[in-house]
């Protein structure tokens, strides 16, 4: 079961788990950190799923587990019908041609010793695509696509600003014409005026190439702008998922409401009521019983400690899913 349209999504994620063993203390008591604890997702071709949550909620791990950059503990990931979880060696390498990632930090994700041309060409080299002349042509085309001048080719990453570096990272991600891209906080490190340039570029490229995009961000305003569907994550679980505009119009989960109300609004006359959450995100090594959010939830009742609420459609909207015993309650 999944909250999105079952009509042949490009990417299907079913009951995905990613656990990390952690040893604690001198007795070496083994504990398990459940970074991703049973996630279901569908993303159609050309569609953007926005994944939002605070640091440590597991959103980056989920992105990496989907790409098989970190092997999932259990669960299934299918890309265009092909089962990715379980692939290895040459088969996995072949599958990787179809999926790419754009990283948050454009300073750490580009090798300082390689020229821009070498960086963007690397995926073509790895997968042995085209002749050297064809590769060069393709690199030039890609840089042009992301709005870089061709004199950038033989320069090094440090010669560029953060926004331009992120464009280089996007060109590299597009090199193999992937069907699916994970963009992990792609604009968080950028200044506002540059941020919107890169967001507009991403939206345009996705539109032109019909790519399915998993857009990971902690910023609810950014994610609203780029997403068709939004999923809110808390302690390894998706707690709410709905079409983008809908989740802002009528948030059902108390965590989503608190998140939305906490954003500083750039309007000094705005004096809306803020839901300030008490306490902090519990340790994922020792999550609360039942609903993981109950320790900070203003609505928590006895049932919340006993039963983990399942992610299910709300009464009046089959597109809007929420995992809460009291959805929509004030």
């Amino acid at each position: 079961m999944s909250p999105t349209d079952p009509a042949k999504p490009l990417l299907q994620v079913r009951d995905l788990h990613k656990h990390f063993p952690v040893s604690r203390g001198w007795l070496r008591k083994r504990a398990v950190l459940k970074a991703v604890a049973g996630v279901n997702l569908d993303i159609a071709a050309g569609e953007t799923l926005g994944l939002v949550g605070e640091s440590g909620c597991g959103k980056s791990t989920l992105g990496r587990a989907i790409l098989q950059l970190q092997k999932p503990t259990s669960g299934e990931v299918r890309l265009a019908g092909e089962l990715l979880s379980g692939l290895s060696g040459p088969a996995l390498k072949r599958a990787r041609r179809r999926m790419q990632i754009i990283f948050q930090d454009p300073f750490a994700s580009l090798s300082p010793r390689r020229t821009v041309a070498q960086i963007v060409r690397e995926p073509l080299d790895v997968h042995r695509i085209g002749t050297p002349a064809e590769r060069r042509e393709r690199v030039e085309y890609l840089l042009q696509t992301v709005g870089m001048r061709s004199n950038a080719l033989n320069r090094y990453p440090h010669e560029f600003s953060g926004g331009q570096r992120q464009r280089i990272g996007i060109a590299r991600a597009l090199a193999l014409e992937p069907d699916f891209i994970v963009a992990d906080e792609p604009v968080s490190a950028l200044d506002v005026s540059v941020q919107s340039q890169v967001l507009n570029l991403l939206a345009k490229l996705q539109d032109e190439h019909g790519i399915a995009l998993l857009f990971i961000s902690h910023d609810l305003a950014v994610i609203q702008h780029v997403s068709d569907t939004i999923a809110v994550m808390y302690l390894g679980r998706i707690v709410e998922q709905a079409p983008a505009m809908e989740i802002y119009r009528s948030p059902q989960h108390p965590y989503t409401r608190a998140l939305l109300s906490a954003i500083p609004v750039p309007d000094p006359r705005n004096n809306r009521h803020r839901i300030v959450l008490e306490g902090e995100v519990p340790s994922p090594l020792n999550p609360p019983s039942g609903c993981a959010f109950r320790s900070r939830c203003p609505l928590a009742a006895a049932v919340c400690a006993e039963q983990e609420p399942a992610l299910q459609p709300t009464v009046n909207d089959q597109q809007h899913w929420v995992a809460c015993h009291f959805p929509g309650a004030e």
Binding site: Q195, Q224, H225
Partner: peptide, 12 residues
């Protein structure tokens, strides 16, 4: 600067 801030909007 004010215009380019991504903000939550009623309409996309």
């Amino acid at each position: 600067l004010l215009a380019s801030i991504p903000r939550i909007r009623e309409q996309r």
